[in-house]
Amino acid sequence: MSVDKQTVQKIASLSRIAITDAEADALVPELNNILGWVEQLGEVDCKDVEPMTAVIPNKLRLREDAVTDGDMRDKILKNAPAAEHGFFGVPKVIE
């Protein structure tokens, strides 16, 4: 499988990364080089092999369904580039 310019632009859009036309052109061979290399995995016989889900067997823990922290609005907003009135600020979403 290989990607063309249109696919690169689609991937960039899904990744929410703006790219120029020239960058898309440059990324086509770069990504194809990497994808061509990882494609060798296709030659491994993986019949009846389960995909890895955890490297070290470890049971997922459950805890009591209770509030354990919170009440730190100002700390959470402290690093927001545009916090206002106790909320995260975003540009207008609805026209």
């Binding site: 990882v38 995995l41 296709g42 993986c46 092999v49 995909p51």
Partner: peptide, 11 residues
Amino acid sequence: YYTQAQKVRTL
């Protein structure tokens, strides 16, 4: 890609 890679990881 992804599922195959995770299977290879198992191997």
